[in-house]
């Protein structure tokens, strides 16, 4: 079963995957400063999976890795939500914001682009992005495999 596309499509897909993934990671990491966030950036990164599946028609069998990644993301998200509860506030309270250290201290007024501010919010963006990347890639990969349009490499 030969389901891969022509060499032009494959080469362009290989080149375009890099800026797509970089842009998605930028959206995730700057979720608290610019429009975007974990869900949006994760969807952008997962679209590169769709591009690779369409162009190459083959992919390594990484179902277990993606599944573990998704479960880890969701678990870490809930543990980050519990941080506020453990430190004596309510669930999902942003108790790490402005505490100094690696969390950047207090920014008065408009944040000029310090990526390490925001307490738990950037961390939550990262873990949610991890979960969304894994979830959407897993759905795409599984549907492509079961519909016969994917050649699975062991």
């Amino acid at each position: 079963m030969n389901v891969k596309m022509s060499v032009v499509v494959r080469t362009v897909a290989d080149i375009m995957v890099v800026p797509i993934v970089v842009f998605g990671i930028y959206l995730i990491l700057h979720g608290h400063l610019t429009p975007g966030g974990g869900f949006q950036g994760g969807a952008v990164v997962a679209s590169s999976t769709a591009l690779l599946i369409v162009a190459h028609g083959a992919m390594k069998d990484n179902k277990t890795d993606l599944s573990n990644m998704e479960s880890t993301g969701l678990t870490l998200f809930f543990l980050l939500a519990m941080v506020g509860l453990i430190m004596g506030f309510s669930l999902f309270y942003n108790s790490l914001a402005g505490t100094g250290g690696i969390f950047g201290g207090t920014v008065s007024g408009i944040n000029p682009g310090y990526i390490n501010t925001g307490g738990t919010i950037p961390l939550m963006n990262i873990v949610v992005g991890m979960e969304v990347i894994a979830a959407l890639s897993l759905i795409l990969w599984m549907m492509a495999k079961r519909s016969g349009s994917l050649e699975v490499e062991k």
Partner: peptide
């Protein structure tokens, strides 16, 4: 802005005030 040191109010609502 003062509570979370973030510019994106949508993210602040999404991950802090309405995190559940």
């Amino acid at each position: 802005q003062d509570h979370n040191q973030v510019n994106n109010v949508v993210t602040a609502v999404l991950f802090d005030y309405r995190g559940l």
